[in-house]
Design a protein around this nucleic acid. Structure first.
Length: 296
DNA sequence: GCGTCCAGGTCTACC
DNA sequence: GGTAGACCTGGACGC
């Protein structure tokens, strides 16, 4: 079955799907030959469903192997819209960058929508997996988590594990199977708190707290520091933070500082003119070359 | 083969 | 509030 989902005029499937590394971490995967984003979606009270997402000029085409129920279709549409940020209004951001010659490509290419997971919980776990390690280790940790704790669909593909599934395994799983090292107790504690409704990461999406206060709330999760919190803030739609990590610092040095390390203050000054959109302007700037030669 | 460094940082103790 | 040192893993690198 194919489910068509109309897309906004300023939407770019390629720029959104490949906006950052999430597309390569299960239960996402991406095929650059066919430009297909695959995702295994968790369906409440049912087996997970694998969807294959491609784009036409004005719509997404979501392919599902079997004929799902109406309720499942509604869930699929909701999750795809959420993950690909179809409901984000980008015009204010585009207005903020359109007068800057170095940033007009963002408007032209429809960049700025950052791929996210169907749940903030998943984004939170994955973000902790990115801290203080190579991308190869991030990939390994997430893969072990999904392969061992994710529920399998009819095709054998696994969804991202639920908080309850993660809370049910001992710390030794995170240490010895997931190989997450010192992060192991953080995952166990996080899953237990979310499963017990002591912590609700999904509420961060609609929180009315000012960004600094929301960031403080995020940092109360063990394993979430400045970088991780600011990365999560971007994924819930707050772009008045930069989320500087070693990769961004290195890339900024190459692009804007003659290959020499720049201070965080200097990086902040460079993007300050974009005000509340500075974090998104920075990320677009850092990833401009990811799709050069593949523009839609 | 072995030791060291470092990668998409964070926590804790201490001042 | 600011900072030093410890913390897991695994790949790259030099010897």
């Amino acid at each position: 079955m194919n489910i068509p989902i109309p897309t906004p005029r300023d939407f770019s499937f390629r720029r959104t799907a490949l906006s950052h590394g999430w597309y390569d971490l299960p239960p996402f995967s991406f095929d650059r030959d066919t430009w297909t984003l695959t995702r295994v979606l968790d369906i409440d009270n049912g087996a997970p469903v694998t969807v294959k997402i491609t784009a036409t000029p004005h719509a997404l085409n979501v392919h599902v192997a079997r004929q799902p129920s109406q309720r499942t279709v509604a869930r699929i549409v909701r999750d795809v819209r959420h993950a690909l940020r179809l409901d984000d209004d980008m015009q204010t951001f585009y207005g903020a960058v359109t007068d800057d010659p170095d940033f007009t490509w963002i408007v032209r290419q429809g960049a700025g929508r950052l791929l996210r997971s169907p749940t903030v919980f998943e984004d939170l776990v994955k973000t902790i997996c990115t801290t203080n390690c190579s991308w190869a280790l991030t990939d390994k940790m997430v893969r072990e988590l999904v392969n061992n704790l994710g529920q399998a669909g009819c095709d054998g593909a696994r969804a991202f594990p639920t908080p309850a599934a993660m809370a049910a395994v001992p710390v030794s799983f995170y240490r010895d199977v997931m190989r997450s090292g010192y992060r192991a107790p953080y995952f166990k504690e996080l899953a237990e708190r979310v499963a017990a409704d002591e912590l609700d990461p999904e509420s961060w999406l609609t929180s009315e707290l000012p960004t600094p206060e929301l960031k403080r709330a995020m940092k109360r999760v063990k394993g979430v520091g400045d970088y991780a919190a600011e990365n999560l803030l971007k994924l819930v739609g707050r772009y008045d933070v930069l989320a500087l990590d070693s990769w961004v610092r290195g890339k900024f040095a190459r692009l804007h500082n003659r290959n020499r390390p720049a201070t965080d203050k200097k990086i902040a000054r460079h993007y300050a003119r974009f005000n509340t959109w500075r974090g998104l302007a920075l990320w677009c700037d850092m990833t401009k070359d990811w799709l050069e030669g593949n523009d839609e």
